[in-house]
Nucleic acid binder design. Sequence first.
DNA 1: TTAAAATCCTACTTAAAAAGTAGGGAATTG
DNA 2: CAATTCCCTACTTTTTAAGTAGGATTTTAA
Lengths: 149, 149
Amino acid sequence: MLNKRTRYAIKALMHIARKSAGGGLAAAATIADAEQISVKFLEAILSDLKSAGFVISKKGIGGGYQLNQQANTLMLSDLIRATNGPIALVPCVSLNYYEPCDICPDESQCGLHDVMQQVRDASLAILSTTSIQDLITREDLRVKKKSKR
Amino acid sequence: MLNKRTRYAIKALMHIARKSAGGGLAAAATIADAEQISVKFLEAILSDLKSAGFVISKKGIGGGYQLNQQANTLMLSDLIRATNGPIALVPCVSLNYYEPCDICPDESQCGLHDVMQQVRDASLAILSTTSIQDLITREDLRVKKKSKR
DNA sequence: TTAAAATCCTACTTAAAAAGTAGGGAATTG
DNA sequence: CAATTCCCTACTTTTTAAGTAGGATTTTAA
């Protein structure tokens, strides 16, 4: 399961992306209030997002956070990797966090290896093609649908 | 990522399945030795597998563990759920461990929901069709291939 | 009937990670 | 210069994972 850091990060990035689309900055306190996150905790998360290169920041009055790239190029897979860790279920099939399986004597002979690779690829097929922008678009569609009723 | 309990459980079940195929029982100490697991830790895991209904046990000399079902009906998804928890990445799309998203005000309006459901289905498509028997078969094939060289 | 072999049961320990808190420093702008 | 905002360090609390320890119980076979 995804940790809370990651889920908050997604919410925060969506918030920032919406603001960035209009050329504006989103302040941590504003995001925290809108998304119901503890300010201090969110600050820590935003700091991670900045180190990861997803956002840039500006201090002082009128300051805040802004996307460092187009929202449609920021993929869920990248975000999850940065804040949650590997997408694979076992380290020996992870693309970005590979480690030999400590509990497995011979990777090339393990019956689980290929299956876990399949699962990784199946998840990645979705996560690496879904951007923050896609999430926003989906959400806007839903709101539209709802208000139509 | 899968926890060690789960990975050990898979190894142990494969071991037991091989033994069961010949009508025999596998003792915890034997499995622990073969698969390089601490005996006491394995005992705890086997106890879980028993409560989950995957294996049955017999005490005393000549005793041990045995599959409680055909190896080709014991699916990875069932095992992972029992020892590792939900397969979904977020609780609100879990089939077996559903919980409303605490950090999400309205599930029906969340842009992430559908995507996470897709990921779950993609993973499940593989995990729920791969049995312990499949893993054994794959492993046997690999050994064959290797010895052919 | 007893000794060995096995599972079973309860409780404890240790280590690591997740989640959050606290307090103040540094930069920016009106 | 004062308000606003990000930034940095350190700490606390809670939960989970991973294992350990010691012995009780059941079964079998000699």
